[in-house]
Design a protein around this nucleic acid. Structure first.
Lengths: 248, 248
DNA sequence: TAATCTCATTGACCGGGATCAACCCCTTCC
DNA sequence: GGAAGGGGTTGATCCCGGTCAATGAGATTA
């Protein structure tokens, strides 16, 4: 069931939707043509495994379309999601042969991938890629530490609100909308996956959605479509500081 | 109360205790002499703040001696430690002006520091440092994600056991001891700090210590000195897989 | 149209860890 | 010596979120 290369390998980087945010952000034209020669694309269906924890990884690369969940599993089956990767995010662990977590497509996913060994020599030869990768990993580390605060100290209600807040900000930035106007977005993952991400059970997730709806913090047109009538109320429910304005 | 430079700035990198594990791991002799010219040292007392969240950071660098806690604080005072830094670990956030967390010395600490702007140009000019920093940040990210599993899914008992396991491994490696023989180590932080690290209250930490002691998993000579008579029992209490042997 | 399946919601109940409080031990300082 | 203070332990109680279970709402298939 491993995904196969699904297109000829000559798509142009210059028209790529993630050109300005992925590891190639700082690449020159020459470097882009090098990438075009060695990259390939893979597609995955929702639920399909991209890499398995402990398994040797042969490829790594960027999410072009779709959402990927990174999860860890304990021997008794308890699972914790440790990352949710959106377009332009980098998947895989350079400088290590085996993956420390599972990566699973949660929506239809398209990756721009490199063969692992090839990528590691590329890193050594291309400072612009190494610099961008370091930048992105530092951002990931910041995000992971924010998530540690969420998992260790926030209540179930705050956890849900924080997750919705992150999605709301993404949506606001993507649409160029001001977060003051009530706007809506689609949840990329199921209640179960949210539970795995937030360290909660599916039942608690559902109950907190209901509670936030009853309190007027959110509105649900259907179970996957959220409207935020009052951004500040959501910010408050998330237990976040309002410093720096609602988009901070 | 800001720490002052506490020695002439000409200590030799070649005799530095963290020479082979810190960001300078891959540096050539020439690069080391450059570092010797621009580095300086700072000392901190236990409890002293090294950087404050949100504050502009002017320095960053490596822990030479001692232990540093990185923590995040919510507006209502809830705190979560997001990292515990030992000698050779790197403190500070390159490529960003303000710190996303507090850094506080928990023991007497000595840092080898660089002025931030100077370090950032150094990074651009010195691929051996950039490569090592990327490696270290990837390791930090892995550790942060392991911690997310702990915070989101482990019981209080498992949390304490996991923390002791990490310290036991550190001690075993440092002493070159085999973990099978019962050996002992000192807890670098208080019960309160452990609670902050593990997402627990001080009372729960204390209770779980008592429980692990009563179950024979650990022995306490005094409240800061732990003996591990049976490493596998500790591994089991931590909810970890025993794959790859006890030091895995 | 019914059967089945998946995803989500809701209810009843329980338990692990938080909270509140007392107490112990050790060190430091009058 | 006694007081004060910090760190740690233990007990009693409470409550948030987990567990178990039933039901609902759509989508797919027979």
């Amino acid at each position: 069931m491993r995904a196969q290369p699904d297109r000829p390998m000559n798509e142009r980087c210059s028209t790529c939707p993630i050109r300005e945010r992925a590891i190639c952000t700082y690449c020159s034209c020459d470097e882009l043509s090098l990438l075009e020669r060695i990259k390939s694309y893979r597609s995955y269906e929702p639920g399909q495994e991209i890499v398995a924890a402990g398994e040797e990884t042969t490829i790594l690369g960027s999410v072009v379309e779709g959402v990927v969940a990174l999860s860890k599993t304990m021997v008794d089956g308890r699972r914790q999601m440790v990352g949710l990767m959106f377009p332009s995010d980098f998947i895989g662990r350079p400088m290590r042969a085996t993956a420390p977590y599972d990566a699973v497509a949660v929506t239809p996913v398209r990756l721009c991938v490199f063969e692992r060994r090839r990528f590691e020599t590329l890193l050594l030869e291309t400072p612009s890629i190494e610099k961008r990768l370091l930048e992105m990993m530092l951002d990931e580390l910041d995000a992971a530490r924010d998530w540690m605060l969420l998992l260790g100290r926030k209540s179930a209600r705050e956890k849900i609100a924080t997750f919705l807040l992150i999605l709301a900000r993404r949506a606001a930035i993507a649409e160029g909308a001001s977060p003051q106007d009530g706007f809506s977005f689609t949840l990329p993952i199921s209640r179960e996956a949210m539970g795995e991400y937030l360290g909660l059970t599916i039942e608690t997730v559902s109950r907190q959605f209901t509670a936030l709806r009853k309190d007027g913090v959110i509105e649900l047109t259907d179970s996957r479509t959220v409207q935020v009538p009052d951004f500040l109320a959501l910010l408050d429910a998330a237990g976040e500081d309002a410093d720096g304005g609602p988009l901070a």
